[in-house]
């Protein structure tokens, strides 16, 4: 047995990994089941920073959204980008998309199509969001943008001069943004934004990144990097927070319209959004007696409405991740059992 395991053909390991990844994908795809996520302080910090951006200035926030990744890491990073755009759109922030990666514009288009065009069709290009596209030059682009953005970007991705885009009025350099939110797969990416933008100009900065990149960025949290999402786990946590908040926000609006004071509406909405299965029971309690039947129906609808699939990608991908990690742990233990058994017999490893 030990000999068989010691000389195990690696194709068996490949097959085990394929099953550990493939079967959960199929099961989750068929059932829609996702594993529960508990957001860590890092994901909460990311969410809060986006949520409160621009509040101090009492106007809509200008968010520079840099999507610096390509399809190779899109599996890990796309759910982060989608959730980020989702939160910004729901919050009413103005989004300025750019990329330092050649295929970044496609990543931008994908997020815009999935979120803005599909779920926020009322948002107007040039007034609510703009795509400035890709610029070659890595960190030098960031450095020049810090002094004069229009030197680097003369037109948007469609070739429209920036002066003709309404939301570009008053934007001259990086200091005109309330927050830089970046999703990164390597160089140029999070580190360059920390070094040449966030630290130099003291601009709030949050970043989502691949798992291999995250350890290098932890030293910057929380002083130079106010929020950090690492790998698909970070994406799933953030996605959970955004989905919950969107439901909560919609419920608060219904409650406010139904006569609840603002603070009470928010408090109640938070409680209801965390336990959506109890909303229908709550609507028959004395606390909900001031609400009209329409508001009650709307609340039940909000609680039971399925979350669109594009907003669940991160949480769904945690399924294959779970089984792949368990397989890794099993393989490491098995490898060590063989190692110690051989050593006891006096063989080398």
């Amino acid at each position: 047995m030990m000999n068989f395991l010691n000389t195990l053909d690696r194709r068996w390991i490949f097959l085990a990994m394929a099953l550990c990844v493939g079967v959960p994908i199929l099961v989750i795809g068929l059932t829609g089941y996702t594993f529960p996520e508990t957001p860590t302080p890092l994901a909460e910090a990311f969410f809060n920073e986006v949520d409160t951006a621009g509040e101090a200035k009492g106007r809509r926030a200008n968010i520079l959204v840099a999507l610096d990744f390509d399809p190779a890491s899109a599996g890990e990073l796309n759910p982060m980008a989608v959730s980020l755009v989702h939160q910004c759109a729901q919050k009413g922030h103005r989004m300025y998309f750019i990329s330092l990666w050649p295929v970044g514009p496609q990543m931008i288009m994908e997020s815009v199509d999935k979120v803005i065009k599909r779920h926020y069709p009322e948002m107007v290009y040039g007034e609510d969001y703009v795509n400035l596209g890709f610029k070659a030059g890595n960190e030098q682009v960031i450095k020049v943008m810090g002094i004069d953005l229009t030197t680097e970007f003369r037109t948007d991705v469609e070739g429209t001069t920036l002066s003709k885009i309404p939301m570009m009025q008053g934007i001259t350099n990086l200091e005109d943004f309330d927050l830089i939110a970046e999703i990164s797969a390597g160089y140029p990416g999070s580190k360059e934004w920390v070094l040449y933008a966030a630290t130099q100009y003291n601009i709030p900065f949050v970043s989502g990144m691949t798992g291999v990149q995250a350890p290098q960025l932890y030293p910057y949290f929380p002083n130079q990097l106010q929020g950090l999402l690492g790998a698909i786990k970070g994406a799933a946590e953030y996605e959970f927070l955004v989905n919950n908040w969107v439901r909560e926000d919609a419920m608060a609006k219904v409650l406010e319209a139904g006569g609840f004071p603002e603070s009470k509406a928010m408090e109640t909405a938070a409680a209801l959004a965390s336990k959506p299965q109890q909303v229908s029971t709550w609507t028959v309690t004395a606390e909900a007696s001031t609400l009209g039947p329409e508001a009650k129906t709307k609340l039940i609808e909000l609680a039971t409405a399925p979350i669109p699939g594009e907003y669940l990608e991160g949480q769904r991908r945690m399924g294959p991740q779970l089984f792949a990690h368990l397989l890794m742990v099993f393989l490491i233990i098995l490898g060590n059992v063989i190692f110690f058994a051989q050593r006891r017999r006096g063989g080398g490893a």
Binding site: L8, R10, I13, F14, A16, M17, A18, V21, A72, S73, G75, A324, L327, M328, L331, I332, L334, G335, N336, F339, F340, A349
Partner: peptide, 20 residues
């Protein structure tokens, strides 16, 4: 190309990760 990493990492974990 990126996904293939998972297979090689699993194989490497089995063969090289020893409590020596």
């Amino acid at each position: 190309m990126f996904s293939i990493l998972a297979f090689y990492v699993a194989s490497a974990a089995f063969r090289a990760f020893r409590a020596k």
